[in-house]
Every structure is written in structure tokens, then in C-alpha cells.
Simulated scan of single mutants.
Amino acid sequence: IQLTQALQIKNNKINELEKKLVTLDQERIKHLKDKEKELSNIEKELLNKLTSGENTKEIHKEKEAKQKEMNELQQELSRTSASYNVNRKKQVFNQVNNFLKVKGDFLTLREEAIKKLQNCCNHLESSINKERNTIGSIRDMKTSKFIDKYTREFQSILVKYNDGLLELNKNYYSLKKIVQDNKELEVSLIIENILKLNSFNLDKYKIFKFATNSQEGTRVQLNSNMMAEDIDSLRKNLSELKLELNQEKKELKNLATV
């Protein structure tokens, strides 16, 4: 855990430095463009002087100097713009990777939740089976008690593992924002399409959307069949989300190498 936290801190620092680079490039580009405009105006003035008859050696010399300065400035502007775009692209991919990591972590937790739900269901079945030979009224009372106990446990697992939605949603909006902020980059549109950012639906990650027998807030008794139905539904949903994530990673990996 400490190593993971240390790596996260390191990555956060790298991301912050990259953001600063983008800001510095942006400021430098603005400065260069202002200077370019200024030089352009000077060149126009010199040209006007030449066309109006002031065809002197000094004006020619100054014009050549300004042209040289303009060429150097445009080269620097080109280099800075290239650096700016590279760093912006890197920022976008950093946020993409954050989103994919959070999504992957979310699915890992969902898998963990399903295992715990299955254990809960198994314990309920096992407990009830042990009481099969007990006298009817006592058996019914004990069965009801077991169902109450494991229904509460089942519900609490579902509630606990539904909390990961907040982090996923937060990272989605962070990614959406940075893609929008850099929409003129070619990769932004491709990323938007691969991750379907405009049609992102949090519902397909909501645990109670699939655990319909155990809808949030209800405390009805759940027998093992009802639990099994919810578990199967969650497994199917998890499988679909895993396939989706793997496909997204594959397409984005290809994109990153372009």
C-alpha cells in the first residue's frame, strides 16, 4: 500500500510539472505572437518608407534585420507550438490513464463484492440446510432468523461496494473536461469516441441497477434464490464491463503509438 501511495504521489507531481510546462508554453506562445505582430507592423512601416521613395541603404538594412528576426521568431514559435501540443497530448493521455485505472480498480472491487455476496448466499444455504431435520416450527423460526441475518449482510455488502461510483464519476468529469479543453487536438476526438464520453452512463455501474431483488433501501427478506439472481445479474454486468474496458485499452494503446 505504501509503495502504491508513493507511486501515486510521484505521478501526481509529474502531472503537476507537465501542467506547468503547458502553461509556460502557452505564455511563451502568446509572447511570441505579440512580438510577431509587432515585427510585422515594423516591416510594413519600412516597406511603406521604401515605396514612398525613401529608398535608403539604412532602411534596407533595417528591413533585412527585421526579416531575420522574424524568421528566427517564427522558428521558435513553431518549436514552442510543437512542444505545447506534445505536452497537451500527454496531459490528455495522463487523464485517460487515470480514468482507465479508476475504472479497472472499480471492476476489481465489484469482483470482490460478488465473491463476498456469493459467500453470504452460501452461508445462508448452509445454515438452512443444517436445520432440515429440526422440528417444523423451530426450523421455520431459525430459517427466518438466518434469512434476516444474511439479508442484512447481503445488503450491507451491496451498499459498501456501491460507493466506488463517486471516484469513477469524478474521474469521468475530469477526463471530459480535459478532452473538451483540448478539443482541437486530433487525439481528443478519437479518445472521445473510443470512451464514448458523450454517452457515458453511470447507471451501468450502479450495483442496485442489477441487484434488483436487493434494491437500495429495502429490507425485504432475501432467500438464497433471490440472492443468486442478483449475483448472476452482477456477474453478467461485470463481464460486459470488463470486455468494454479491455477493448478501450486495446484501442487507446494503438492510439498512443500513433
Rank of each mutant, 00 (worst) to 15 (best):
E229T: 09
Q91H: 11
E216A: 06
E69Y: 00
I207Q: 01
N98S: 13
F106V: 03
T56Y: 03
L46V: 05
E72V: 08
S52G: 05
Y84K: 08
L46D: 07
N171F: 08
A113L: 03
I138A: 10
I9E: 15
K142W: 00
E248R: 09
M226W: 03
T143E: 13
T23C: 11
N85R: 14
L21F: 11
L245M: 05
Q26K: 15
L195C: 03
F154A: 02
L107W: 01
K149M: 09
L189Y: 12
L238W: 01
A6S: 13
A211N: 02
E111C: 08
K66Q: 08
L117V: 00
L234M: 05
L107I: 04
K177R: 14
M141S: 15
Q91M: 15
S52L: 05
L165I: 14
K160D: 04
N223L: 00
A6R: 08
R219K: 13
E111P: 07
E16V: 11
A82S: 13
Q221E: 14
G136Q: 10
D34P: 01
C121P: 00
K49R: 11
R132C: 06
S144H: 13
K35S: 14
L32S: 04
K142V: 15
D230L: 02
Q75Y: 12
E76S: 08
K103M: 14
E18H: 14
S127G: 08
G164K: 05
E16I: 12
N237P: 03
E64W: 02
E58F: 01
E111F: 12
K115T: 13
D140T: 13
R139V: 01
L165N: 10
R88C: 12
E248V: 03
N201A: 08
N11H: 07
V92W: 09
A211D: 00
T51E: 12
M141Q: 12
K206G: 04
S214L: 01
M70V: 08
F99H: 08
T80R: 02
E248F: 06
L3Y: 10
E229I: 07
N11F: 07
S127Y: 02
K44T: 11
A113T: 04
S214A: 15
K183P: 01
G104R: 05
R28C: 12
Y172Q: 07
E167H: 07
R139M: 02
E54C: 07
L3G: 09
Q8S: 15
H123S: 15
I231M: 00
L243P: 00
K183E: 09
N169A: 11
A228E: 15
I128C: 02
E69C: 04
M70I: 09
L243S: 15
I147K: 04
T51P: 04
I1H: 09
H123V: 06
L73C: 06
L243Q: 13
S156G: 04
E16W: 07
E111L: 14
L21N: 13
N237D: 05
N254T: 11
V179A: 05
N55F: 07
E153F: 02
K20A: 10
L245T: 03
T4I: 10
G104A: 09
T108Q: 15
S214Q: 03
I14R: 11
Q155T: 09
Q247R: 10
K115V: 13
D140G: 13
Q75I: 14
